[in-house]
Design a protein around this nucleic acid. Structure first.
Length: 850
RNA sequence: GCCCGAGUGGCGGAACGGUAGACGCAGGGGACUCAAAAUCCUCCGCCGCAAGGCGUGCGAGUUCGACUCUCGCCUCGGGCACCA
């Protein structure tokens, strides 16, 4: 007997789609367009289950929208610049380009058998000179528009390798290869003025209604708008030029609790002091031996050094506070100087206790007033508290009120002014690396920094480079740097910094609308296809990638590369969860863990040798833990449809999904049953009994409703469950006739086409459908088939379910009440008395309160 | 350290503030088979013979009614600006 054979079915239908040109995006002004985009992959060389999940979800949306009559754009490309290619070149020789393009070819070959509805004619990689040349053209426009500039910024410097390290390459404050203590070092670097758009990027978040709230919240917090007071302390004993010290505080209401002032080790005053005082120099040098990441700075032990200088309290000239240098003050935020109020800030309190500084309470709790001991009193700003050392406003007020009152009071006395600040910093895009988009400017000894001419673009990366030593090969290339000044024609050198790879991924979505255009975008194409209607990717990109893209879209609008409607390029965002798997380990020498691939393990034992394995609970699939399942093997063993079906079933898309071998096999068995339902249609009786027919039709139409709701609501697990229910109905519909069954199978084929497209085509054909199911319109549910005449109403007594009654769907309240009172369980409890309350929610529930 | 999430049977999960556990996996029992696979039937939150009781990470609260709302915890995960 014939069996479900995906190895035969899947290539056949992929060829059919190809022949029909089913997935070519066609600019059709007469049809509504729909742009589905999954975050494009980094070409590591192997696709993993996370990719399968991401692209399957996008494929469901894309195929569903096609069936809904949209002109769909569903492209794919490669985020191809970045560190791993350089690391590969260092470790095994060869050129990053060679490694990258070979990986792209491999990954494309792994992806195509998944049967995704991608328009491959639009594919590109960000390392294509054609792409990054257009990026350079935009950079020049940004530069001219004042959106790009240079300033000094700190980097992680490895003093042994003499190279800049990425945060990821700094492990416990040491270089990952050299093990040398990392130093912070200042370099002049290129920046994009994202901070100028802080307010706009913040306000526009409200309009992103189809983004997850959590992503909007994260971006809001990242932008970090704050209202505070900026004022200057006058200093005592400070060197010339430092007689005033500007500080910023979001809690000026605690000014009377200030017991010290502190500056960043990178503050100009600290830098001045270190030149004259060896103790200060030693301390600031120590502070700089930390990575540049905020997590590293925040988790480092809080240390400080008393400069011996003092500042005067602005409202009491006689009161002097010690001035410290402290490692937790960030030069990038505010003015790089603060006043410390230990009573109402835990970090300040820890610092004060450590260095024996005073703690002065400013306000206390209304409920249980007590002086601060080891835990700072930091109530929500909305909670009213009693000010014992307030200086503006009433004695009892909230923190928020007190802050505003303090700002007003200080301004009226000429002590500082209220200011609005943002945590968001300008975007540093300089990277001292080879494998990135060269920044197209020239350094001329006479003209300074000069933009390259657009006709000279792309400034292409030289191919004759070596990676046998650390550092940027562009710096030591014998000829590449040498060029002529575009302005004066004299000898000049090229910029050797390349761009952050986040730049590459900040506009690829726009390039997909016209991937071969001679300019970064084509206005007509961008106008038709933009914006992205549904963007899908990992939540790990919630802040940086998405915020940079939002900024870039605005910058592109400003420089004429996108129409004005593109300021928010992603109309809807969906963030998917990870794919996880159990970890299998045995113990090697001295108890060290040895990890094993899932395919090496069977029934809790190693296939070879039979040693028992420890099972560690699921975690994100990672090569180092070997808890990875290669999609290529799954497709080979079960077919793409099984991989797609499993990855969509069970877990809601936004949550993590656990891959299990049993689940994959079960998915395969289910698809086999579905195939058999279609293949065995001929065995059904020519005509069935009317009751079975109508009940099957009802089941099919309920499935239309439920699958449609599931897809529209991004609850693919629920759509899958509805399809299981329909399959069960078909299997149980013994009395239904052949025609009715075939109709149900065709509906099932249409409903499952977005998820398991190959099997859907096969079932469609077996059930007598004409043409490709990929070319049919989405079925409509008949409302008449969705409603039942009677409903079952649960009866609660005091909130606990005790009984149920069947009533007509249209039954009114009085009829329901009568039926409830007649119910034996109710009568037993009431014993003749009247209920205290009778709550009737028609169609839902009844609650009798006695 | 800071910001954001998530916690429901043995497992993945379902549930406009209204019958907790849809649908599936695993498992038990049975049919078919020389046997196995496949397939089919059936049981399946926990305690209890039963009546019944208890159950959505923990502790309070709001409500006729809380997985769902509020507050306080615990655990796990994501991000923290040079990983992508």
């Amino acid at each position: 007997m014939a069996r479900y054979d995906p190895a035969e079915i899947e290539p056949r239908w992929q060829a059919a789609w190809e022949a029909a040109g089913s997935f070519a995006a066609r600019h059709d002004p007469d049809r509504p367009k729909y742009y589905v985009l999954e975050m494009f992959p980094y070409p590591s060389g192997r696709i993993h289950m996370g990719h399968v999940r991401n692209y399957t979800m996008g494929d469901v949306v894309a195929r569903y929208r096609m069936a809904r009559g949209h002109a769909v754009l569903h492209p794919m490309g490669w985020d191809a610049f970045g560190l791993p290619a350089e690391n590969a070149a260092m470790e095994r020789g060869g050129h990053p380009a060679e490694w990258t393009y070979a990986n792209i070819a491999d990954m494309r070959d792994q992806m195509k058998p998944l049967g995704l509805s991608i328009d491959w004619s639009r594919e590109f990689a960000t390392c294509d000179p054609e792409y990054y040349g257009q990026q350079q053209a935009m950079f020049l426009d940004f530069l001219e528009a004042g959106l790009a500039y240079r300033k000094a910024a700190t980097v992680n410097w490895d003093p042994v390798e003499m190279t800049v390290l990425a945060n990821e390459q700094v492990v416990d404050g040491k270089g990952w290869r050299s093990g040398a203590e990392v130093e912070r070092r200042e370099l002049t670097q290129w920046f994009l003025r994202i901070s100028d758009m802080s307010e706009e990027l913040l306000e526009a978040l409200d309009g992103l209604e189809n983004w997850p709230d959590k992503v909007r919240t994260m971006q809001k917090n990242w932008i970090g708008k704050s209202r505070g007071l900026q004022f200057a302390f006058s200093t005592v004993g400070a060197p010339e030029g430092f007689d005033r010290l500007e500080v910023y505080s979001t809690r000026p209401d605690t000014l009377w609790g200030a017991t010290f002032a502190a500056i960043s080790p990178d503050h100009p005053l600290a830098r001045h002091l270190e030149r004259h005082d060896p103790a200060v120099a030693a301390f600031t040098a120590e502070c700089r031996r930390t990575g540049t990441s905020e997590a590293a700075l925040e988790t480092a032990e809080k240390v400080g050094l008393d400069t011996g200088l003092r500042v005067r309290h602005p409202f009491d000239e006689a009161r002097e506070l010690p001035l410290w240098i402290a490692n937790f003050i960030l030069m990038d935020y505010g003015t790089g100087a603060i006043f410390g109020c230990p009573a109402h800030d835990q970090r300040d309190l820890d610092f004060a206790r450590k260095y024996d500084l005073d703690v002065i309470d400013v306000f206390e709790s209304l409920k249980e007033p007590a002086p601060v001991a080891d835990i700072a009193f930091v109530p929500p700003k909305t909670e009213p508290v009693r000010y014992v050392r307030g200086f503006a406003g009433p004695e009892v007020q909230t923190g928020a009120e007190a802050v505003e009152a303090a700002i007003e009071f200080c301004e009226s006395r000429g002590v500082g002014q209220g200011v609005t600040r943002y945590r968001l910093r300008d975007w540093g895009i300089s990277r001292q690396r080879y494998w990135g988009c060269p920044i197209p400017v020239v350094h001329c000894p006479t003209c300074g920094v000069v933009p390259e001419k657009k006709e000279n673009l792309p400034v292409a990366l030289p191919m004759d480079v070596s990676f046998d030593q650390p550092g940027n090969p562009l710096e030591r290339h014998p000829a590449w740097r040498q060029t002529v000044c575009p302005k004066c024609g004299g000898a000049a050198t090229r910029e050797t910094d390349t761009m952050d790879t986040f730049v590459d991924s900040s506009w690829y979505f726009a390039r997909f609308t016209a991937p071969r255009a001679a300019t970064p975008t084509d206005p007509a194409e961008a106008d038709y296809w933009m914006n992205v209607d549904q963007y899908i990717g990992g939540v790990e990109h919630a802040i940086l990638h998405l915020l940079y893209s939002r900024f870039f879209a605005r910058a592109m609008v400003q420089t004429g590369h996108l129409p004005a409607k593109c300021r928010e390029p992603f109309a809807a965002l969906f963030t998917q969860g990870m794919v996880t798997h159990e970890i299998y380990q045995t113990r090697g020498d001295r108890g060290r863990p040895v990890y094993h691939l899932p395919e090496e393990v069977e029934n809790g034992r190693l296939k070879s040798g039979g040693a028992p394995v420890e099972v560690i609970p699921s975690a994100k699939m990672s090569k180092s833990k070997k808890n990875v399942v290669d999609p290529v093997n799954i497709v080979r063993d079960f077919g793409a449809d099984t991989a797609r079906w499993f990855i969509l079933s069970d877990s809601p898309p936004e949550r993590d999904v656990e891959w299990t071998a049993a689940g994959a096999e079960a998915a395969f068995r289910h698809l086999g049953r579905v195939w058999r339902l279609a293949a065995d249609l001929d065995a059904a009786p020519e005509s069935g009994n009317p009751e079975a027919d109508i009940s099957l039709r009802r089941a099919a139409h309920r499935a239309i409703r439920d699958v449609t709701d599931g897809i529209e609501g991004f609850a693919f697990n629920k759509a899958v469950a509805a399809l299981y229910t329909l399959t069960n109905a078909l299997r149980e519909a013994e009395g239904a006739g052949r025609g009715c069954r075939a109709e149900a199978v065709r509906i099932m084929a249409q409903l499952m086409a977005p998820m398991v497209p190959h099997l859907a085509e096969e079932a469609w054909q077996l059930a007598g459908g004409a043409g490709l199911v990929a070319a049919t319109s989405w079925p409509e549910a008949d409302p008449a088939l969705l409603t039942e005449a009677t409903v079952t109403l649960p009866i609660q007594i005091n909130g606990k379910r005790r009984s149920e009654i069947a009533v007509a769907r249209e039954a009114d309240r009085a009829a329901i009440e009568a039926a409830v009172m007649a119910d034996p369980a109710v009568q037993k409890v009431l014993a003749g008395a009247t209920p205290k309350k009778l709550i009737v929610v028609p169609g839902r529930i009844v609650n009798v309160v006695v």
